[in-house]
Design a protein around this nucleic acid. Structure first.
Lengths: 338, 338
DNA sequence: TTGTAAGCGTTATCAT
DNA sequence: ATGATAACGCTTACAA
C-alpha cells in the first residue's frame, strides 16, 4: 500500500470492540453465532467506521468473487438488451458484471482480442463467463484456462461448432415453424423461401422449421439461397421475376425481407394483398419499410436473463453436468405484411 | 478453497523451477531482474502449467485492482455508446469494466439502487467510478465511502448540484451558440425558442448559448417554456398560432422539434422555406420526422472516452486536484430543416 | 541475481 | 459464543 491511512478493516473494528477478528467476521457475514450484545456493538462500530468488506480477499478465501464476465461484440447493437437482461438477473444475486467488448466480428485480430478478454476474466477470477463468440470454431484448447479452473461458461446467440458447452439463443427452428403457421392462414399455393446459406446455422434452422411447418399442407415451396443475410437489389429483382407467381415469401432475415418489399413495390405487387412477406428479426433495427414488416422479434433481454440464470446455476456446481441448450422463443410481430 | 486441485500459483512454479517465489514473481511481472536462464525456465513452466496471475491478490497488495466501475441507467438507450466509449479507452489500459445498471430514473428506489451499486464497487475495490447520477442532489455524505477510500469518480451527462466533482458531458452552451450561428444564415427577423424549464440545466444552457449567439444580430427572440423536453400537440399548436410570424424555431430537444414540424405541416407552413427548425439531440432516436431534422448529435461515445481518460488520470493521482469539467462539443447535423 | 520475512484482509479449522 | 492460528497468493522491504 502506497500512502494514506489504511482502509478500515475487520481488525480495526475488532480492536475497537475488544473482540477478535473472527467474531467480527462472524457478525458481519451473518455466518456463525454471536451474542446479541457483541453483534450490536460490532455492527455499530462497523457503521461508524464506514466499514466495507473487501470482496477481493473474500474471493480469494472462498473461491467466489461474486463477479461474472460478459463478453460481447464492441458494436453492441442487438446485444445491448442481452447485456441488460444479464444484468437484471445478476443484480438480484449481488453479482458484479465485468463487461468486455470485442472489436471486430471475425478474423485473427478479433480472436486475439476475444482470447485476451477471456484471460483477463480468468485473471480477475470471475466466477463464470457469458460469451457471444467471435471465434465460432474455437476448440477446447482455446478455453483451456477456463476449463483448467472449472470456470463455467455459457455461450449466447452463436453456437460453438467444435466445443460442447451450455448455450442460450433464439429458437430458430420454432421461429420457422411459427412463420409457416402464420403463412398458412393465407392458404397459399406456392411460397418462396429466401435463405442465406446452409452453413449458417440460424438460416438453416429457420428454413428447416418453415419447411416442416408446411410439410403436410401441400404448399409448394421454392427456395433461393442468397449467400448471406443480405441481397443486392438486382439479385433480389432477378429472383422475384424468375419465380413468377407467388403467394408468400419467407425471408430468413429482415434485410432480405425489406429488400423484397422494395422490389415488390417496384413490381406493383401488393403486399399483403397479392403476396405475404415474413422476415426474421436479425437486426432489430428495420429501415423505412422495417417498421411495417411482419417479422420475428428475437428477445435478447430474455436470452441474457436465461444465460445469466443458467450460468449462475453452474457456478459452484461441483462436477460436470450435461450440456444445456436453452432456446428462447422469438415473438411474431404482425405488422400486416402477411 | 472448497475442493478440487489447487489452481496453479507462483508457488507451484517456484517449486518446479527450484527457485523462490520471489524470483518467479519478478520474472512474471517483469519488475526486477533475473538471469536469462531462470527467466526462460520460469516462463516455460508458467506456460506449461497455464499459469494465470491472480489479480485479486495483486490488487490487495498493490492497491490497484485494474477494475473500474461504470454506473448507468438500466434502460441503456443513449448511454450505450457512452459505455462503449469508456470500454474503448479502458481496454487499451488493460482495465476491467464493471458495469452497473440502475433501475429507474429518479425517486427513492432508484437512489437506493444507485447507492447499492456504488457500495458494491467499493467492496470490489474498484480503482475508480464513472457515474451517470440518478441522485443529482446527492451531497458528499452520499459518496462518503468513495471519499473515505479516495476512489476517484467522474460524473457524466448529468451534473451533481451539491457535490463538486469531475464531470464530462455535452457542451450545451456551445451547442446553443452553434444553433444561433446556423440560424443566422437565414437572416431571420424573429425567432422562437422552445425551451423546457430554467431549472433544467441542459435546457437553460442551450437557451443561454442561443441567445448569446444572437446577441449582436438584432434578431428578435421570443421564448416559450414548456415544462419539460416535451409538448402535447395542442400546447404546441397554441404556441405556434399565438406567435404569429416566425422565421426560425430553436427547440432545446428533438421531441419538441418533431412536434413543431408536425404542427407546421398541419398549418401548411413550409420548412425550411418559411421557417427554419433546429432541434437538439436529446434522445438520439428520432421518429418519422427525426431522420430529417436539423439537430445536434451528442457524442456519447466521446463522452465515455473522455470520462474514462479523465478517470484514468485520476487513478493513482496522489492528493486532491482541482475539479475538471470536460465538455464535449455536439455535432450539428444539417438535415435541411434550417 | 536471488532469497527471507512480513504483511495484505479475510475465511477455514480447530480449539476453548 | 469466542478465539488462536494457519492459509489464500501475491508484493514490499530488506537482506545476502
Amino acid at each position: 500500500m502506497a500512502t494514506g491511512k489504511q482502509a478500515v478493516s475487520m481488525k480495526a473494528i475488532a480492536e475497537q470492540a475488544g473482540v477478535s477478528v473472527m467474531t467480527v467476521s462472524r457478525v458481519l457475514t451473518g455466518k456463525g453465532s454471536a451474542s446479541a450484545k457483541t453483534t450490536a456493538l460490532i455492527k455499530g462500530i462497523a457503521k461508524d467506521l464506514k466499514y466495507r468488506p473487501n470482496r477481493l480477499v473474500r474471493g480469494i478465501q472462498t473461491g467466489r468473487t461474486g463477479m461474472v464476465g460478459v463478453i460481447l461484440p464492441a458494436d453492441l447493437g442487438y446485444y445491448k438488451n442481452l447485456l441488460v437482461g444479464a444484468h437484471d438477473y445478476f443484480a438480484a444475486k449481488d453479482c458484479g458484471v465485468i463487461t468486455s467488448l470485442v472489436q471486430g466480428n471475425m478474423g485473427e485480430e478479433a480472436i486475439t482480442d476475444e482470447l485476451g478478454k477471456l484471460h483477463r476474466l480468468v485473471d480477475l477470477r470471475a466466477d463464470g463467463v457469458i460469451l457471444r463468440p467471435v471465434n465460432e470454431e474455437a476448440s477446447s484448447a482455446y478455453f483451456e484456462e477456463l476449463i483448467e479452473r472449472a470456470i463455467p461458461m455459457v455461450v449466447v446467440d452463436r453456437r460453438l461448432s467444435d466445443y460442447k458447452c451450455d448455450f442460450v439463443g433464439t429458437d430458430d427452428y420454432l421461429g420457422g415453424q411459427m412463420a409457416a403457421e402464420h403463412m398458412l392462414r393465407r392458404e397459399p399455393k406456392r411460397v418462396l423461401v429466401c435463405s442465406a446459406s446452409e452453413v449458417l446455422r440460424t438460416s438453416f434452422e429457420r428454413v428447416r422449421g418453415f419447411r416442416d411447418g408446411l410439410k403436410e399442407s401441400g404448399v409448394e415451396v421454392v427456395e433461393h439461397a442468397f449467400g448471406r443475410f443480405y441481397s443486392s437489389e438486382s439479385d433480389m429483382k432477378k429472383v422475384l421475376k424468375e419465380q413468377g407467381r407467388l403467394d408468400g415469401i419467407f425471408c430468413v432475415g429482415d434485410l432480405l425481407a425489406i429488400r423484397c418489399l422494395r422490389i415488390l413495390e417496384q413490381m406493383r405487387v401488393s403486399v399483403p394483398g397479392d403476396v405475404g412477406v415474413i422476415g426474421f428479426g436479425n437486426l432489430g433495427l428495420p429501415g423505412d419499410y422495417g417498421a411495417r414488416l411482419t417479422t420475428f422479434e428475437q428477445n435478447p433481454h430474455e436470452v441474457g436473463r436465461q444465460a445469466a440464470k443458467l450460468l449462475y446455476s453452474r457456478i459452484g456446481q461441483k462436477g460436470k453436468s450435461p450440456v444445456k441448450q436453452q432456446l428462447i422463443v422469438p415473438t411474431l410481430v404482425d405488422m400486416g405484411t402477411c
